Amino acid sequence: MKPEQSAQNKRNLAQYRMAISRFIRSAMILKNKRYEDLAAELELRGIVLTSENLRSKVSKGAFAADLLLVIVDILDMNDEALLQIQKLQREQSD
């Protein structure tokens, strides 16, 4: 892939990353969870990440799909979580 195309892809995916970031932070507030709590819950599942690492991933909205699903599970988000993230993304692009 050409560098220009890679940069264009990154720009086009930015609105999705922002929607994921906003949704996760909102869910954390609603569930009264801190990054330290998420890190502890992940560790119970055998996934070791520091709270600082999680904060960075959330602020960038950059997750591997499997990690995103574990966080959705930890935060006990309803089955509509991905639809809600898509809705946020669409609202941002309008």
Rank of each mutant, 00 (worst) to 15 (best):
E52H: 02
L68Q: 04
Q15S: 12
E41L: 03
E36H: 08
Q15E: 14
Q84C: 04
D73C: 09
A64V: 11
V58A: 02
V72A: 08
E36S: 15
S51A: 08
S56N: 14
Y16M: 02
Q5M: 07
I74E: 02
Q8Y: 10
R55M: 12
R55T: 01
L13D: 08
M28I: 07
R22E: 15
A14N: 07
R25D: 04
D73P: 03
S59L: 09
A65W: 14
A39S: 11
R90S: 07
V70K: 08
Q84S: 07
I85S: 01
R11A: 01
N32S: 13
A7Y: 01
R11Q: 06
E91A: 05
L38K: 04
Q92A: 10
L38C: 08
D76F: 02
S26W: 09
A62G: 07
V72I: 14
N78P: 07
Q84D: 06
G61A: 09
E41D: 14
K87W: 05
K2G: 10
L49F: 10
V72M: 06
E43G: 00
F63G: 00
L13A: 12
L44Y: 13
D76S: 01
K31L: 10
M77N: 02
A65R: 09
K2T: 12
N78Q: 06
I74F: 02
A64T: 14
I20G: 02
K57E: 11
K2Q: 11
L83N: 11
A19I: 06
L83T: 14
L82K: 03
S6N: 12
E4V: 13
K57I: 10
L68F: 12
M18I: 13
S51I: 00
T50C: 01
A81L: 03
M18L: 10
V48M: 12
L49A: 06
E43I: 03
K87P: 00
G46I: 15
L83R: 06
Y16G: 05
N78G: 13
R25K: 14
D76K: 09
R55H: 03
N53T: 09
S51Y: 07
L83I: 11
K10I: 06
R90H: 00
S6T: 15
S56M: 03
Y35P: 00
Q89P: 01
A39G: 03
S26V: 04
F23H: 15
A62R: 15
L54H: 02
A40V: 07
S51D: 12
L67P: 11
K60N: 09
I20L: 14
M1P: 13
R90I: 06
R17V: 04
V58N: 03
A65G: 12
L82I: 15
I24Y: 00
L38Q: 07
V58R: 05
N9P: 04
P3S: 05
I47F: 05
I85P: 00
G61L: 08
F23S: 08
R90Q: 08
P3C: 00
K31R: 15
Y16E: 08
S21F: 14
K10G: 01
V70Q: 14
K2C: 05
L42A: 07
E91D: 09
K57H: 11
R45G: 05
E91L: 13
M1C: 12
I24H: 09
V48R: 13
